[in-house]
Nucleic acid binder design. Structure first.
Lengths: 143, 143
DNA sequence: ACTAATTGTTTACATATGTAATTGTTTGTG
DNA sequence: CACAAACAATTACATATGTAAACAATTAGT
């Protein structure tokens, strides 16, 4: 698979602006990203092997996902002999942020407390969660 | 628009089992649901009017979304003369839960504390959030 | 040098989603 | 009663997504 030539193909201002849009990845694509966020760079067959543990995907399926991620600019590729090694461009932290902020905004009016209250009411808080939350709150109050 | 005839059309065991699957709604569809969660039952044109405030949708677009929601069983319809009045079947609480639990599981290993820590690190916690969190934690500890 | 294995590239195809136009039907009104 | 208004139902169409087969190129052995 060829490294994404996005930046060299880009020419117009419009495209330059487009490139600033957030990278959006699908659920299936995120599974590929998770593998690479764990360890990278990896070759396609290594990614396939990792994913085989959790998903019932054929090799071509994973290849397709890798290609779509390259096109989206979420991955980069460097040649390694006859094959390519892939590395995440999109950082997990950035993706996490966009995902969780989007949910928070859409479902809880952007407020964290109602989110936690929701989990609290549904008994989703473990003992450790509570202890940890206490620590977080204490730390925030000191500042 | 006809009331969803799902239950009367259903006949095979397979379909009965399918009907137990969680209702999944898209982003656009959720905008329609939000309107009805606010106030219901409502007629199609009332939903259209409400949505006009936030989205640039033509009337047929909203009708399509309503129909898809009916097919999915997320809405019910009752005849009101020549028109229909729509009411949510899917409860907001249930949808909230599935959405937030899914995010929590996929991104934070199912633990609430890391989620809050994430928002904390990104300064997404308002003063009120912190006070509220403190209250929640205190309440949980007492039990 | 030829062939099998490896890896990447192209094409495919069904369903979901966003967005809407077009068509059909009922009914109130002149 | 004919027709326009008000709704609903059907059809449309592009892009995204999940899933993969088919094809091509390169390389490593025999």
């Amino acid at each position: 698979m060829p490294p994404s030539k996005k930046s060299s193909e880009r020419s117009s201002l419009r495209e330059a602006i487009d490139s600033l849009e957030a990278i959006v990845i699908s659920e299936a694509e995120s599974a590929v990203m998770e593998v690479l966020w764990q360890r990278s760079p990896l070759a396609a067959d290594e990614i396939v092997a990792e994913l085989a543990k959790e998903r019932d995907w054929q090799e071509p399926t994973v290849k397709t996902l890798i290609n779509r991620l390259l096109k989206k600019g979420a991955l980069s590729a460097e040649a390694d002999g006859r094959r390519y090694l892939y590395t995440p461009v999109l950082k997990r932290e950035v993706w996490l942020s966009s995902q969780s902020t989007s949910l928070l905004d859409r479902l809880f009016g952007g407020k964290v407390a109602p989110l936690v209250a929701h989990f609290s009411e549904h008994r989703k808080l473990t003992r450790e969660d509570i202890a940890e939350l206490k620590r977080i709150v204490a730390k925030l109050e000191k500042k």
